[in-house]
Computed example of a mutant assay.
Amino acid sequence: MSKPLVLFIHGFGSNGFGSKAQAMRAHCQQHHVPFIAPSLSHIPALALQTLEELIEQLSAVSTEHKVCLMGSSLGGFYAQVLALKYHLPVVLINPSMHAGRSLRRALGTATHYFDDSTYEWRESYVATLQEIEPDYPLPFTASQCWLLVQTGDELLDYREALDALPEVKTTVEEGGDHGFQGFAEHLEDILAFLENSVNHC
Rank of each mutant, 00 (worst) to 15 (best):
residue 1 M to C: 13
residue 2 S to M: 15
residue 13 G to V: 09
residue 16 G to H: 01
residue 21 A to E: 06
residue 22 Q to H: 00
residue 24 M to K: 03
residue 24 M to Q: 03
residue 24 M to E: 10
residue 28 C to S: 05
residue 36 I to N: 04
residue 37 A to D: 00
residue 39 S to E: 05
residue 49 Q to A: 15
residue 52 E to V: 02
residue 53 E to V: 05
residue 54 L to E: 03
residue 54 L to Y: 00
residue 54 L to T: 02
residue 57 Q to E: 11
residue 57 Q to M: 06
residue 61 V to K: 11
residue 63 T to G: 15
residue 64 E to R: 14
residue 66 K to Y: 11
residue 66 K to D: 09
residue 68 C to P: 07
residue 69 L to N: 08
residue 70 M to Y: 15
residue 72 S to W: 12
residue 79 A to N: 07
residue 81 V to G: 09
residue 82 L to V: 02
residue 83 A to K: 06
residue 85 K to C: 03
residue 89 P to N: 05
residue 90 V to K: 00
residue 92 L to D: 06
residue 95 P to Q: 10
residue 95 P to L: 12
residue 98 H to F: 15
residue 98 H to T: 13
residue 98 H to D: 14
residue 101 R to H: 14
residue 102 S to E: 10
residue 103 L to V: 06
residue 104 R to K: 15
residue 104 R to M: 13
residue 104 R to Y: 13
residue 105 R to A: 15
residue 109 T to D: 08
residue 110 A to L: 04
residue 113 Y to G: 02
residue 117 S to F: 05
residue 119 Y to W: 10
residue 121 W to Q: 02
residue 121 W to D: 04
residue 122 R to P: 07
residue 122 R to K: 14
residue 123 E to S: 11
residue 123 E to I: 08
residue 126 V to T: 12
residue 127 A to E: 14
residue 129 L to Q: 07
residue 130 Q to P: 00
residue 130 Q to D: 15
residue 135 D to R: 13
residue 136 Y to F: 12
residue 138 L to C: 06
residue 144 Q to M: 12
residue 144 Q to A: 00
residue 146 W to G: 05
residue 148 L to N: 05
residue 154 E to K: 06
residue 164 A to K: 07
residue 166 P to Y: 12
residue 171 T to V: 04
residue 172 V to E: 00
residue 178 H to T: 05
residue 179 G to E: 12
residue 181 Q to N: 09
residue 186 H to V: 00
residue 186 H to W: 09
residue 190 I to P: 02
residue 192 A to Y: 10
residue 199 N to V: 14
residue 200 H to N: 12
